[in-house]
């Protein structure tokens, strides 16, 4: 195998060398001056440009149409269609410009290729034209920006009051989630309390932490606003939910948040995609180390009644770890008081 690769390389080198020598010698023999402009090469390049352009456009159109299902993800949150609307509007604008400019460029290359009997048109400036192509893009951009900002403020704005609050904590290389429990309030946490069992550092001297629970998978209700309170333990991570068109970085030392309204349950998505193993997943989307590529967490979207049922079945963290809690209270109560000061 190595020998074959070696021979191929050697042969290609020889070909390159021969091409070099023969064209050099040929051009000397033809007594061409080095800047002889009009030759078959010039037409060859002009025509190849046009062929390249036409072929590329055909391939791009075909692939974009044929593979649409493959690259366009189903939308599973309330704001996703709004984001996609702007995305495809931008696509329409940019693709039109792309088409016009590339066609003009390669066509001009072909149409105005060198001819020694013709002289180029001395055309240094045209203020009207320049103003037009400054102002028109500016107006189009104002439209895109205005549209974008309107949606941006809505999506990034304050979450509705009745949002389900869930804490998401990223660490190398997994995610943890914590629900506030029946009192609807997340208890305090402190990174100095983190250990192997208490992975998000819940402070149990805060009574609102006593009913907090930490499930294996995140469950969220369809049709209700969900607010993720996002933290990171070690390095920056990013909570990315491609089907929800939602993303927010998890930054150590700086809590962040994002909210959205799921519109499709996991079961519905399984039906839609025809994949019975389908799951929504939080994927990490900020380089975070060795296993960055496998840092993910399952998110299960349920009908609201299913969700409430599931939530009521969950046991609080201290109920599952009574020994840890007893020890914590015995050892840490005074320390924690000072930590929190």
């Amino acid at each position: 195998m190595n020998l074959i690769i070696g021979i191929i390389l050697l042969l290609s080198l020889a070909v390159v060398f021969l091409l070099f020598r023969s064209t050099e010698i040929l051009s000397v023999a033809k007594k061409k001056i080095t800047h002889s402009f009009e030759d078959s090469n010039n037409s060859f390049n002009a025509i190849t440009g046009v062929i390249f352009m036409v072929t590329s456009f055909i391939v791009v159109f075909w692939y974009s149409y044929d593979q649409f299902e493959n690259y366009f993800l189903p939308m599973a949150s309330q704001h996703a269609p709004e984001v996609e609307m702007l995305f495809w509007a931008t696509m329409a604008v940019t693709f039109t410009v792309f088409l016009i400019t590339q066609v003009m460029m390669f066509y001009f290359g072909y149409r105005y290729r060198y001819n020694k009997n013709r002289k180029a048109y001395f055309y240094p400036e045209n203020h009207k034209l320049e103003i037009v192509w400054t102002v028109v893009p500016a107006i189009v951009l104002v439209g895109l920006v205005g549209w974008g900002l309107y949606k941006w403020n809505k999506i990034m704005g304050p979450p509705p009051r009745d949002a389900e609050i869930i804490e998401i904590v990223g660490y190398q290389f997994a995610w943890a989630s914590r629900y506030p429990g029946p009192d609807n309030e997340l208890g305090n946490a402190n990174y100095k309390l983190i250990d192997v069992e208490n992975i998000v550092g819940i402070d149990f001297t805060d009574t609102s932490s006593l009913d907090d629970f930490m499930p294996r998978e995140i469950h969220i209700p369809k049709g209700k606003p969900v607010l993720f309170k996002i933290k990171a333990r070690d390095v920056i991570h990013s909570v990315y939910l491609p089907y929800m068109r939602s993303q927010m970085n998890a930054v150590p030392g700086m809590p962040t948040q994002m909210w959205f309204i799921p519109t499709k349950t996991t079961a519905e998505m399984r039906e839609e995609t025809g994949n019975e193993n389908f799951n929504f997943e939080i994927v990490c989307n900020k380089i975070c180390g060795r296993a960055h590529f496998s840092m993910k967490h399952t998110v299960i979207v349920q009908e609201e009644w299913e969700y409430i049922k599931w939530k009521n079945e969950q046991k609080s963290w201290i109920e599952k770890n009574p020994d840890y809690y007893a020890n914590f209270i015995k050892n840490n109560s005074t320390d924690v008081a000072t930590l929190n000061d």
Binding site: M105, Y112, R118, L129, W133, P137, L141
Partner: peptide, 24 residues
């Protein structure tokens, strides 16, 4: 906004090619 001067440059290149006598 920065897209505007960039667009101007691109258009100007294409306008330069127009009715030129292009040597490849």
């Amino acid at each position: 906004i920065i897209a505007v001067p960039s667009a101007v440059k691109a258009f100007n290149y294409i306008a330069t090619l127009w009715r030129g006598n292009i040597v490849f």
